[in-house]
Design a protein around this nucleic acid. Structure first.
Length: 533
RNA sequence: GCCUCCGUAGCUCAGUUGGUUAGAGCAGCUGACUCUUACUCAGCGGGUCCAAGGUUCGAGUCCUUGCGGGGGUACCA
């Protein structure tokens, strides 16, 4: 066991010896640190004649005020301020003889506490000797300012809330090791600047999306995450097994097919915001489980969904207190509406100089850039070239519209040109953020497309799996509709200036640690020994 | 999966061409201090150098394998 653990356990005992519960209790009427900060204007200076003076503005960097001098000039009197009740974690601790300063942090921010032996009494001051960085405490006291004008709670009564048995990260640099940041996210949240903010913003974004959809009378549902056929996207699923039913199950890779069943059932505007699972590689843009929004609107089309996508993003910007100009990874993103639109073929031509219809030339070009066009449908080859040469360079926000129909088996074709599917993808900073169609509702064509896809495709390509149950649903009649998918994690990345998807997922997938942490076993042993004594 | 970089005290990091007993700051412990704010001052402790092998008179440093992480790449409508 390390010196840190020993020291903390010893202090834990001393707190118990004082008759204080080191694990704390209910602390009613507690105020957030941010609330208390907003009471700063109530701190005033009362002169001996009873008149009250406002304090000067200490926050003006142009005009620094020496508070000690100011009080001197004002004449003898006393600072007055509201009584407050705060609670939080001890982040910094500065002792100065019979006085202690604590920087107390809650999830709204920091506030300084001053504890004077004469003010809190011997017993509470004795307790401060057993404080460690990271401990949770609660404080009752008067809000005021120190001689250096720092807004401070002058403690009258202390309450111990929770002992911390592990030492905190380094107090200036914080937790730098990206592995520890992910494994011990609780430390990352408390001690690293901006981390709490990022995850609170994530919540705001998700709430904003729900609000936007609610305003349009969309209904949120919860579909099954265990599927008998993992469909709705081309991805390798995670497999699992149900014992009582004695059958394999797949974790869902998309929300699409069940939402469409609900459209058949007459849920005319329906969405799910939930987790999907894809058994594929990891990268700064891919986590094996991630959050998707899928929304379907009866009698809509992909144009309607484009407008909705834009609204969702603009509302999310507003909800996170941002304008149209956002900085991301050192670059500027301009979200000013309307977002640009370009057709697939247009972009293809711009990037390659090739005619989008010239399959021969495209196949040769594909070979030249290291792709293998042999035995593939011309549109698949074209799509591979597109992914290789176009997608990464789309800084956007840009709606890419009108995809080749043969690579979109769930999408309705354009009435004027059946070779083209009514589909768009939204690209920002080279990332695919949204994907939407005018949904295919022709069960006969759907069945045929499933079959065509099946030919010559690998077994694990689940998109190719015939989903007869889904086709049956379509045979019962799904209204024409627009459908939309948005990758929530990637959207959060863009709106929080996060470079890695693992910075916006609280607990990303990690391998288990290689060795057992020996300090844990030691601690358990020693606690048992302590109990014996 | 493959390529590549990284792994040194609780944390953040140094560590020269392979050479004496592996260092610093924070954190910890002891003491002093009633307006500090990365408090200060005096003193003291703290290491499985990721793991296992190997080369060498000698390995934190070089080699091999493994483990964990970052990045790239492959897979990925």
């Amino acid at each position: 066991m390390s010196e840190h653990h020993e020291s903390r356990l010893a202090k834990l005992e001393k707190i118990q010896d004082m008759g204080v519960d080191p694990w704390g209790a209910h602390f009613p009427n507690r105020q957030w640190n941010s609330e208390v900060r907003s009471l700063a204007h109530q701190v005033k200076y009362q002169l001996q004649d009873g008149s009250v003076k406002e304090l000067p503005d200490f926050d003006d960097p142009q005009n620094p005020v020496d508070y000690r001098q100011w009080k001197n000039d004002a004449g003898s009197g006393e600072e007055i301020g509201p009584q407050v009740r705060v609670a939080g974690r001890i982040i910094l601790l500065r002792g100065q003889g019979k006085i202690k300063f604590i920087t107390l942090r809650d999830w709204t921010g920091d506030i300084q506490i001053m504890i004077g032996k004469a003010q809190v009494g011997d017993r509470d001051f004795e307790m401060t000797k057993h404080f460690d960085l990271g401990d949770w405490i609660a404080v009752e006291g008067r809000l005021g300012r120190t001689n250096t004008a720092e807004l401070t709670v002058f403690a009258a009564k202390l309450h111990f809330m929770c002992k911390t048995l592990e030492p905190p990260p380094e107090k200036h640099a914080g937790l730098q090791d990206s592995e520890l940041k992910q494994r011990q996210r609780y430390l990352d949240l408390t001690y690293n600047e901006g981390v709490m903010d990022t995850f609170l913003k994530r919540t705001q974004i998700v709430q904003s999306i729900r609000n936007t959809l609610a305003q349009r009378q969309y209904c949120e549902i919860e579909g099954p995450t265990l599927h008998t056929i993992a469909g709705g996207a081309a991805a390798r699923p995670f497999t699992t097994y149900h014992n009582a039913l004695d059958m394999p199950l797949f974790m869902r890779i998309a929300l699409e097919l069940h939402l469409k069943r609900l459209m058949v059932g007459g849920m005319e505007r329906v969405y799910e915001l939930g987790r999907v699972y894809r058994n594929e590689g990891l990268s700064p843009r891919h986590n094996p489980e991630f959050t998707m929004l899928e929304a379907y609107q009866a009698f809509g089309n992909y144009e309607v969904m484009m407008e909705l996508t834009e609204q969702i993003i603009l509302d999310a910007l507003k909800a996170t207190g941002q304008g149209f100009q956002v900085e991301w990874n050192g670059q500027a993103i301009d979200f000013s509406p309307p977002f640009a639109r370009k057709t697939y073929d247009e972009l293809f031509h711009e990037a390659t100089g090739l005619e989008p219809g010239n399959t021969q030339a495209i196949a040769e070009y594909a070979k030249k850039i290291g792709l293998d066009p042999l035995g593939k449908h011309p549109d698949v080859v074209k799509s591979e070239v597109f992914e290789e040469k176009v997608e990464d360079s789309l800084m956007g926000p840009l709606f890419v519209i009108d995809y080749p129909a043969s690579i979109c088996p769930l999408t309705k074709r354009k009435a004027s040109n059946p070779q083209v599917a009514e589909r768009f993808e939204l690209f920002i900073q080279g990332m695919e953020i949204a994907n939407a169609y005018t949904e295919l509702n022709d069960p006969l064509l759907q069945e045929e497309l499933f079959r065509t896809q099946l030919e010559g495709q690998a077994d694990e390509d689940s998109m190719a799996k015939m989903d007869e149950d889904f086709v049956l649903a379509l045979r019962n009649g799904m209204p024409p509709a627009g459908g939309l998918g948005i990758g929530i994690d990637r959207l959060v990345m863009l709106l929080t200036n996060s470079r890695s998807i693992r910075d916006v997922i609280l607990f990303p997938v990690l391998r288990p640690q290689s060795q057992q942490n020996p300090s844990k076993d030691d601690a358990a042993l020693t606690q048992a020994e302590v109990a014996e004594q």
